[in-house]
């Protein structure tokens, strides 16, 4: 009689981690996309900037966001650990290997796709998240006439603000917030960045078409009746709607200028 190995030291345990972190990241994408759809509001970025502040300052969401960063790191680290282990499992490769005959390209190249995504996440976060958190983003003031709902925006220069404020002054709603919207607008003038974002979203699509259903397979959640639904969501929501939704943003800003 001997005790079985701990869960996480087994190959299955490692896959469980990949699956759970992956699915968590998938749920984040839905929230992130819905929130960022506010970029398309024709309101000079007011809703978006207000939302950005909420997302970075509401405590429960902050907790979740740290969970998210951790998940990304764990997902990537375990991917690396598993990949190294898998390479060791075949020290001498085949001279001829026709993977295309038995499996989808993306399923065999999740590591490559994941690396593209990791580079993307780093770029994306340094472009926006880092700047946003390090006072590199100037403020903007929105004055909204509560009777007419007309809004005017004024860029503020340093010294004219002390932080996020939102209040009602007479018939006007005043909002002073970091102008991330402007950052977005500015960043997506660069066609190289836009192209990179679009390519990354392509990678996201392929990564998730395999990854979403694969996560359920790893969890063992496989059932004749429900597996087709999972496949459908994997392909259409995570493979099509979400990547197109995200890719539309840089394209929108690039071409609307």
């Amino acid at each position: 009689m001997n005790k079985s190995k701990p869960l996480l030291s087994s190959t299955l345990g490692k896959k469980l981690i990949m699956s759970l972190t992956g699915l968590f990241l998938c749920t984040f994408l839905i929230v992130h996309l819905i929130g960022n759809l506010q970029l398309f509001y024709n309101d000079q970025g007011k809703a978006f900037n207000d939302y950005a502040h909420f997302m970075t300052h509401f405590t429960p969401i902050k907790v979740v966001s740290y969970l998210l960063y951790t998940s990304i790191v764990i997902h990537a680290v375990y991917a690396l650990v598993i990949t190294i282990h898998n390479k060791k499992a075949r020290p001498i490769g085949y001279a001829v290997y026709r993977g295309s005959a038995n499996s989808a390209w993306n399923s065999r190249n999740m590591g490559l796709l994941g690396t593209v995504l990791l580079v993307f996440i780093v770029t994306h976060m340094s472009n926006f998240w880092w700047k946003y958190h390090n006072d590199a983003v100037p403020y903007i003031e929105y004055r909204t006439n509560l009777a007419t709902h007309e809004t005017t925006a004024t860029e503020l220069i340093a010294g004219e603000y002390t932080g996020y404020v939102k209040y009602v002054d007479n018939d006007f709603e005043i909002l002073k917030a970091k102008d991330l919207y402007k950052q977005v607008q500015f960043a997506f003038q660069n066609w190289i960045l836009v192209a990179f974002y679009v390519i990354a979203m392509g990678a996201l699509s392929f990564h998730l078409i395999h990854g979403f259903k694969s996560a359920f397979q790893t969890l063992g959640w496989d059932h004749k009746k429900y597996a087709p639904i999972i496949r459908f969501i994997g392909i259409w929501l995570f493979g099509v709607v979400i990547p197109i939704g995200f890719a539309a943003m840089p394209l929108y800003f690039y071409f609307s200028n």
């Binding site: 190959t11 993977g99 005959a101 038995n102 399923s107 065999r108 259903k213 694969s214």
Partner: peptide
């Protein structure tokens, strides 16, 4: 190595063992 759910095994299995078995093992 670990399973990454590519499905190559099922496609090449000469007697048609299904991936549902892997889900069940998990």
């Amino acid at each position: 190595g670990s399973c990454t759910n590519t499905g190559a095994c099922e496609a090449e299995c000469p007697v048609g063992i299904k991936l549902t078995n892997i889900a069940r093992l998990n």
